[in-house]
């Protein structure tokens, strides 16, 4: 469960988050959309404490992320993060990318961590690629390794920061399919994305952000068929052709 309350964030004089409110219940999939510069990625990065905030609060599974004394290293083990540009470790194989955090952070025995990583990679269709280095994989394969890497920590929440926007069109589907499968298993997910088909099909709630604020949030059918905010109507008319 994620509760975002009145979150304010500045870069110098630039106000990027302007009082954001959003709730994500357990097992919910929330897709955040909106024009670039709206603060979507920044918001996502404040949820696991990658970015500090200047006001408001974010509570993940009962832990106040930005409170003094919060053990972020511990909290982040419960929050998987998937990046736009994958950020795989280039000096490690796919398998090692997936096992390094379980082994070093959670102190899980290597054999056990590898067994689990192989299971995850196989489920994501990467059985033959386990011993390849990231540079030997396509973008879609790299992003699936990144999803496996996040899942290996047994997170309670998964955050996706534009997971398909750096991919070639024909690779987008394989990543979205992996995310759909995850949503089907009841994972709590927050996805920053412009994949409206994915939002329509998988999301429990779609949020529209602009100028550091959530302008509208609604279940997908309502969001797409009957948006209330004129800016949302305009935005949808431009991206839904």
């Amino acid at each position: 469960m994620i509760q975002i309350r009145d979150v304010v964030k500045r870069y110098g004089h630039l106000q990027v988050l302007n009082g954001v409110n959003l709730e994500v219940a357990d097992g919910q999939v929330v897709v955040i959309s909106g024009p670039s510069g709206a603060g979507k990625s920044t918001l996502l990065r404040t949820i696991n404490g990658l970015e500090p905030i200047h006001g408001g609060s974010i509570v993940v599974n009962g832990t106040n992320v930005h409170a003094r004394g919060t053990n972020l290293n511990k909290l982040r083990q419960e929050i998987g993060f998937v990046f736009q540009h994958f950020n795989l470790y280039p000096h490690l194989t796919a398998l090692q990318n997936v096992t390094i955090a379980p082994i070093q952070v959670k102190k899980i025995p290597r054999a056990q961590a590898e067994a689990k990583a192989k299971e995850l990679l196989t489920a994501l269709g990467l059985k033959d690629k386990m011993h390849n280095y990231p540079a030997q994989l396509s973008g879609g394969q790299q992003q699936r390794v990144a999803i496996a890497r996040a899942l290996a920590m047994d997170p309670k929440v998964m955050l996706f920061d534009e997971p398909t926007s750096a991919l070639d069109p024909e690779m987008i589907k394989e990543v979205l399919d992996a995310m759909k499968a995850l949503a089907g298993k009841g994972m709590t997910m927050v996805v920053v994305s412009h994949e409206m088909g994915f939002a329509r099909e998988v999301a429990d709630k779609v949020a529209f952000m602009e100028s550091g604020k959530v302008l509208e949030e609604a279940p997908p059918e309502e969001f797409f068929n009957n948006p209330q905010n004129p800016r949302v109507k305009e935005f949808l008319s431009k991206i839904l052709r």
Partner: peptide
């Protein structure tokens, strides 16, 4: 690249 540190910290590494 910065993303390397961010990915590592996001997975709970100190």
């Amino acid at each position: 690249p910065k993303g390397q540190m961010e990915a590592a910290r996001s997975s709970g590494m100190s």
